[in-house]
Write a protein that binds this DNA or RNA. Structure first.
Lengths: 201, 201
DNA sequence: GTCTATAAGGTGATAGAC
DNA sequence: GTCTATCACCTTATAGAC
C-alpha cells in the first residue's frame, strides 16, 4: 500500500534525524538508524539508496525548520524595542529545548560540503525585513548607529553560543552542576535583552 | 638515542594535533596522522598505544594552550575601559588565525567524555581576577550592574560565534564570498568593542 | 516491501623480523 | 626504534529469497 510505504519512508527520515542530529554524519551507524526506526537495515538503502543521500535529506529538513523558526521570530511586526526581548526569550527557549540542532548544523557545515552550502544560500532573503527595519530605525535615530548584519549576528551570538558551549561552561564555571547551568541560561533571557537594549538605545 | 626518541614523539604529537583539530576524533584516520608525520603507522601505537590515548594527549595540549591565551588576555592589569577593546581585538585576531581550535574543542566536548571534562575544570581558577575586577567596578558604579559570569560569556559569545559559524554566515549573508566575510570579521573588532562599551557604560 | 546472507572495503591494533 | 605483514573487526552496500 502507498500509505504504508509513505509511513515507512517518513519513519526512517524521523529516526535518521534523531540519530544524525545527536551523532553527526561521521558518528552515525546505519544499524543505529534501523534500530531507532525498528526496521531492517537494508530498508534504509531501499528507500534512500545510500547513507549520504539519507543524510542530505535529514540536513535539508533540519535546516529548513531552523530557518523557518528563526525567521518567524525576526520578521514579526513589532518595533525593535519590543521585538528584541521577544527574540531573545523565544529563541533561548527554542535552543534550550532543541540543543542538538544548532550544534549539528554548525558541525556539519564546518567541512563545507558543496551540496549542503546551496541549501544555506536561500537564507538571506528571509531576513530582508529585519535588516530593513534596523536600517530604518537607525536612520530615524530611534537606535544607535549599527549595521543590521552586525546587530543580527550579535543577537545570534549572545543566544546561541551559551547553548553550544554548554559542556565547557558547565564544567568551567558551574563545577559540572547541570541545575546551575540551566539557571544561568534562564537568567540570560533578561540579562541579554538588557545588554542589547543598553547597547543600542 | 633519547633525543631521536623525543623528536619522534613530539613529531607525532604535532602531526596528530594538526589532523585531529581539523577532522576531529571520529573523522581522523591513524594512517593520515602517520602520513602527516612522515613515519610508519605502527610507530603511533609504539609511542601512544592507542588512538584514544593519542587523542587525549592532543586534546589536553590544545585545551591548555587555549586557556593560557584566553586567560592571559582577560587577566591583564588595565581597567575594563581599556581592557575590553583589547580583549576583543586580540582575541578576534587569535581566533581568525586559528579558526579550527575552538570548533575542535566545542565539537569534542559535545559528547561529554568524562576524562576530558576533568581537564576543563581547572579553568575556573584562571578567571578569578577578571571576575573580581568586574564585581569591583560594578560596586564602584564605574560600569552598569552585571554579573561577571554573564559579561564574560557575552564577550566570548560575540567574538567566538562569528568564527565557528563562518560557513553559515558566509553562505547566508555574503553569497559565499570569502573576502566579504573576512572584512566583516575585521569590522567586528570595532563594532563589538563599541557594542559592549555602550552596554556597560 | 521486507527479510537474510554476504560481499567488498576499510580501520585500529599487534606480532615479529631487522 | 622502526619496519612489514597480517589479524580481527566493523561498516556500507547489494543480491536474491520470500
Amino acid at each position: 500500500m502507498s500509505d504504508l510505504k509513505q509511513d515507512t519512508e517518513r519513519n526512517i527520515l524521523q529516526a535518521a534525524s534523531r540519530v544524525f542530529i545527536k551523532k553527526g554524519m561521521g558518528g552515525t551507524r546505519m544499524q543505529e538508524i534501523a534500530d531507532e526506526a525498528k526496521i531492517n537495515k537494508s530498508l534504509l538503502h531501499y528507500y534512500y539508496r545510500s547513507k549520504q543521500l539519507l543524510f542530505e535529506a535529514v540536513f535539508k529538513n533540519t535546516m529548513l525548520e531552523f530557518i523557518a523558526i528563526i525567521s518567524k521570530i525576526f520578521n514579526s511586526d513589532e518595533e525593535l524595542k519590543i521585538k528584541i526581548p521577544l527574540i531573545v526569550e523565544t529563541y533561548t527557549d527554542y535552543l534550550g529545548k532543541n540543543p542538538y540542532i544548532i550544534s549539528f548544523i554548525l558541525r556539519e557545515l564546518q567541512s563545507e560540503p558543496k551540496i549542503i552550502l546551496k541549501i544555506v544560500e536561500m537564507i538571506e532573503i528571509k531576513f530582508f525585513k529585519f535588516f530593513n527595519q534596523v536600517a530604518q530605525e537607525v536612520s530615524e535615530k530611534k537606535i544607535k548607529e549599527i549595521k543590521p548584519e552586525h546587530l543580527f549576528i550579535n543577537i545570534l551570538s549572545l543566544t546561541i553560543f551559551p547553548i553550544i558551549a554548554k559542556p565547557l561552561i558547565r564544567a568551567a564555571l558551574m563545577k559540572g552542576d547541570n541545575e546551575k547551568y540551566m539557571q544561568f541560561i534562564e537568567e540570560r533571557k533578561k540579562v541579554v535583552a538588557d545588554f542589547i537594549f543598553s547597547a543600542i538605545y
